[in-house]
Amino acid sequence: MHAFFTVNTVTELICLLISVICLYKDKNVYWRSFMLYLLMVCIVEMVGISLRLEHKPNYALYTWFLVIECTMISCFFYHLYRKYHHKPGQLYSWLGLFILVFLLELFTNHFSNFASKTAAFMSVVFVIASLYYYVLILKDEHFRKLETYPPFWIVNGVLFFYFGSTACNVFFDYLLQEKAHSLSLSTRYVTFNILNVLLYSCWSYAFICRYRQRN
């Protein structure tokens, strides 16, 4: 049983709990959808662990979850950009491009591996999206107290996670090689533990700020 409670899963569960407490009565659908997304993250993580324990491959699960991850984060970025008069066409174009790259990679590797190139591509786009959001904030004449501004902390978490995971994504194929398997596994594992803690800490803080500002 304790195999299910790793640093990753505990962090995700805590974040899910905070999101439910803080966003349950939130009127904004984009913010409320974080609860559903985090629930799905926790379920995928648990199923992934149980598949691993049964010595079955779990890459397919994580590969298909990329679509949900990309949709959720892209929609939230769209929600943030909407204030600056961005059109929904940009969101649909990006999601279309993502699906194209995703399917192309799946067909290329014959559905036999994790879509790491799509994940790397998605990471780069999210890093650019985060940086663009910072530019919009800096250009905005309206002043915001960023210490407690929830969207800013969501974007901070996204930037930390996707920028930090770039190296792991780029060298993903190598890190899977058997030669360096044990060492690489620990490197990847520790890296993603740190990134997950950073991501979900930032998000939890954003949810708390959102809750406090709503009340």
Binding site: G164, C168, L183, T191, L195
Partner: peptide, 21 residues
């Protein structure tokens, strides 16, 4: 060597975490 490469990846990741900070 693979050990060096993994160290390199760890350093790159560390830098990639420091930069957003």
């Amino acid at each position: 060597s693979s050990k060096e490469l993994i160290l390199l990846i760890a350093i790159i990741t560390f830098i990639f975490l420091i930069a957003p900070l």
